[in-house]
């Protein structure tokens, strides 16, 4: 299956994306990750004001099949969470790059975004993973 990844998004190895939104960074998980998980039933997110540390776990997404930890693609302070995804995980299922975003973060260092993969590199990576 081919996935579309927005050009302005940056991606972590663990399939979270980060996208600059003014001074803030929007964080979610990629359409590929959502497809791999299957039917999502539960999303667990941290609380506003929490500090995220790049690479460490901040929550989890649970599908009928499995539960996967979420890792912070960048460090920063959590400004907002997508409350509506918590009660309605379908939004994440159906539109992970849009309505199904998870967090808004004030980045500790916006330059960290450059350490993540660009959309084309990520698309190649998942194309390889999908073969298996």
């Amino acid at each position: 299956m081919a996935f579309q990844f927005p050009d302005q998004f940056r991606f972590a190895d663990t399939h979270e994306y980060a996208s600059l939104d003014g001074e803030l960074v929007r964080v979610g998980i990629s359409a590929f990750a959502v497809d791999q998980l299957g039917d999502i039933v539960f999303v667990d997110l941290p609380e506003v004001g929490d500090l995220l540390d790049r690479g460490t776990t901040f929550g989890s997404v649970e599908s009928v099949k499995a539960v996967e930890d979420l890792h912070a693609p960048i460090s920063g302070e959590l400004v907002r969470i997508n409350e509506s995804v918590l009660s309605n995980p379908d939004e994440l299922q159906n539109d992970p790059h849009g309505e199904g975003w998870l967090l808004l973060v004030r980045p500790a260092d916006p330059a960290q975004l450059q350490d993540l993969m660009d959309a084309a590199t990520y698309a190649n990576k998942v194309a390889v993973e999908s073969i298996n």
Partner: peptide
């Protein structure tokens, strides 16, 4: 005894 359980939230008991 083996019992059936219902959870109040959405998290899955595995």
């Amino acid at each position: 005894r083996l019992v059936g359980l219902k959870l109040s939230g959405r998290a899955i008991a595995r």
